[in-house]
Amino acid sequence: MNAIPAELLRIIIGLVAIAVSVGLIGLVMVWVERKVAGHIQRRPGPYEVGPNGLIQPLCDALKLVGKQLFMPKGADPILFWLAPVLAFLPVLLLFLPLPVGDGLQTLDVNLGLLLILAFSGLAVLSVLLAGWASNNKYGLLGAARGVAQAVAYEIPLLLSVLAVSFVAGSLDLAHVVKLQGTWPWNWNIMTQPLAFLIYIVSALGETNRAPFDLPEAESELTAGFHTEYSGMGFGLFFLAEYANMVVVCSVATALFLGGWHGPVLPGPVWFVLKVSALMLLMVFVRWTYPRVRFDQLLVINWKWLLPLAVANLLLTAFFVKLAQFA
């Protein structure tokens, strides 16, 4: 019998690790989100179940798994159940090219950044299908907002990422990280501060996080595109949202914050620390800023982010060319 190829083994181990960590991150993030929300609103948040309410998300997850799955009357059965699966499956793929440490990535491809950008587009489709197939007007309104928002915010996101890959001359995340140094002033955020800002804002838009959570705005649309989902149907959307947050923050860490580079501590620890800090920032933003109106959302994108991102990209291209001549 032939030995199992090392590459295949690596991918299988990586996928198992990814699946486990997505589940764990989901649990931890629910707790963090509720605790932060609580303290910002001057209440303790969950504290009854376990020390400081640590077991609370586990109980919630078990409750979610045990719930009955409903489908509204007149909904399209195939599309209705396809949507949550389509939301969750690509997420596992997005984790593959993330460089957690030096050489510590599941899939070593030279187009890793492009892979992430390409497959994150499928998340929008799941929002659309969910909203459409639910046969519910809140769902449909949420989906309509989802399209307009996703189509708009994807452009500045791509442009800001492109600026960094222009400088690095590569679409390989590990390569971009290798070009950065140990200390904060060696990171790409020093040369591309504007791109970082644009990236973070449009990442909030792409992941449907507050203040840009219009597709699921609970005060206007009940729950938006996932109004009609119960049990794990909703659970998958929920997990996918947190997993998408992790991917977005990891890409930001690799591109702008030096990835696994850092003094004293080993690389993967630094990577996780930086990603956690960014996640915490996203949670803080959610609970401190009010939701924008839909026209404001589009104005921010089309009148501010897009021209700034284009200008930034042109300037970057100019300086890269200048550096080549010099």
Partner: peptide, 10 residues
């Protein structure tokens, strides 16, 4: 998939 189909959906 990410752009054209989303616009068709729109």
């Amino acid at each position: 998939v990410g752009a054209v189909c989303v616009l068709i959906f729109f």
